[in-house]
Design a protein around this nucleic acid. Structure first.
Lengths: 340, 340
DNA sequence: CTGTTAGCGCGTTCAC
DNA sequence: GTGAACGCGCTAACAG
């Protein structure tokens, strides 16, 4: 079948260990022998078996990446950027798509990454038990979502500040009835929806606007959920004149609902989202931009650095990336009220 | 560190081979011994090292998936669906994001999947040389993009039929100047853009419409490219009244360009896309729907089936999935012409 | 600078 | 039904 290290050794007239040293760029091999071996290996199409190499060295040169849903733009983008960093550094990526609760549970009880990866990047927020399971792996850990966790390097954004800029923008435009579409039904230990909600409440309070619970709806972080949530908000006796959606996908769902109700944006209702989805620009959505790919790349880099310096203890670093409000065409002052 | 098979064997008072047999559900172990071993293994948090298992058995229980760009909706969706099938069958997924030509080249020369995977699913279209490299792996191969290739199971759609339904729809509405935004700059061996272009030309010819090369523009399969292409088409002396975009992302770029030019859709220009992107509905895009996730799942299933029946030769199966035109709000008859 | 010797942690014969 | 011995392909420690 495929060539083994001994085949190369024999063909090059050296021992297996010399082949191993030469091909991995270790010192202690004369240039001519190295060249010879490289040539023979290339000719035979030899690549070291990762399984055997891992077994012997204890290192796998593989990173495990845990994702709730690869198909979603946010996660796909983070994964894409992270993978580039990893592969550039010579690491392979083992992908685990842990969408459903059952699959997720199975993953954490069986922990198939055990002895298989040198580090783990998780794009889903592990609860206490799951965190402990990951820590038991004894490898560097990082995440790009959720708050700080012992043992994890976390790269994120300031959810509060982002939300504040969005909601304040609506307030400054003159809106008083400001709804919110949130992702409340997510895992309880996920702080993002909570942080964003608190910031929303704070801005309202600051502006002297009384909070109306009827103006909050759950959009489940999906387009469909956003559409449902907006429909709910429109059914309220005094519907909002502006809506803050905790994600662009929910904001787009809201836009769809508004179109179905023959309401114009921003004339009848203003909408602001969060993320700056690649298609936010297409629909002209005003939103809070966060550097999604950068977060993936940065988390990957921090992980790789820990892999390079096996000495130091896991630094539990915490990196905050910048956000900014992007004004487009879905926000405007409310229509003048009263009879006319 | 983590428990090994010998730790379990010792704790259970049996030999390592019995542990191996018991945990993998092989026959020849008494029920009580099996139960005992299972309990001990669970308590110790034991999982067999994949590296060692692979080395010993020759199987890796890992599938390699090659993707041009994970962040793109189409690929993310296919990957997501495929991963679910693989993981349900007990296989892990090694992801290779081969976006740039350099990375891609490095991958195919070094072929890091060698001895590492039991099968490969590629979402990028390998050229002859790359196909040969993959075949040299000696494992089942599948793809969800591009035409038939020796040695590959391919799951796809009828690009010609899809395009015909889209362009014919425009013709039936009364359009005579129908532009096309294509992804011509893709790899030469990728048949999709060619098939779609030919179908476009055929429908025009059938309808007795003379083809105007100025009405074709390259959109590079991206939103930005689509926007550029539409801008080009609008600069033509007699701009099109309708446009067929070979992908929804390019169609959305076209919509953006039209909005920037203060042209209304569909009153001034009709647009039809291809894919039925998850957000196509949000912007009301008329498009040719293809079952994206289903293609990934089906390809994965066919691969798994080959893995189950190691006997038979690779069947080089070719599966055609259904497509259908989805009418939304971006297409309408052209405005009545002439002075008014 | 290079070869030899030992495992890495399993699965897989073959005995019993 | 169970255990002992061997080897998968490679890296690491030790000689020379």
């Amino acid at each position: 079948m495929t060539a083994s290290i001994n085949d190369v050794a024999r063909a090059a007239g050296v021992s297996a260990s010399t082949v191993s040293r030469a091909l991995r760029g270790r010192s202690g091999v004369s240039d001519e022998v190295r060249d010879k071996i490289t040539a023979v290996a290339a000719q035979l199409g030899y690549t070291a078996s990762r399984s055997a190499a891992s077994l012997a060295s204890g290192r796998t040169f593989t990173i495990g990446v845990l994702v709730p849903y690869v198909g979603r733009w946010f996660f796909g983008t983070v994964l894409d950027a992270a993978e580039r960093e990893f592969s550039a550094a010579g690491y392979d990526v083992l992908l685990y798509n842990l969408g459903s609760p059952e699959i997720r549970k199975r993953f954490f009880t069986r922990l198939p990454v055990r002895k298989r990866v040198d580090a783990v990047l998780t794009l889903l927020i592990p609860d206490e038990e799951e965190s402990a399971a990951l820590r038991s792996l004894g490898v560097p850990l990082a995440t790009t979502v959720g708050g700080s966790r012992p043992g994890f390097t976390v790269v994120g954004i300031d959810d509060r500040a982002g939300t504040e800029s969005a909601v304040r923008h609506l307030v400054n435009l003159g809106h008083r009835r400001i709804g919110m579409i949130s992702g409340a039904s997510g895992p309880l230990h996920w702080t993002t929806p909570i942080d964003r909600r608190n910031a929303y409440l704070d801005v309202l309070a600051d502006a002297g606007i009384e909070h109306d619970p009827a103006l909050e709806a759950d959009g489940d972080y999906t387009v469909e959920g956003g559409e449902r949530a907006m429909t709910e908000l429109l059914a309220v006796s005094r519907p909002p004149t502006a809506v803050y959606a905790q994600s662009d996908e929910m904001a787009m769902g809201a836009l769809r609902a508004l179109r179905r109700h023959r309401l114009r944006v921003p004339e009848d209702v203003s909408v602001v989202g969060f993320d700056d989805h690649e298609l936010a620009d297409v629909v002209g959505l005003t939103t809070v931009a966060q550097p999604v790919a950068d977060q993936g790349a940065e988390a990957a880099r921090l992980l790789l650095r820990q892999l390079d310096e096996p000495g130091a203890e896991p630094p539990t670093e915490q990196v905050q990336m910048p956000i900014r409000l992007v004004l487009r065409e879905t926000t405007a002052p409310p229509r003048p009220r009263g009879p006319q």
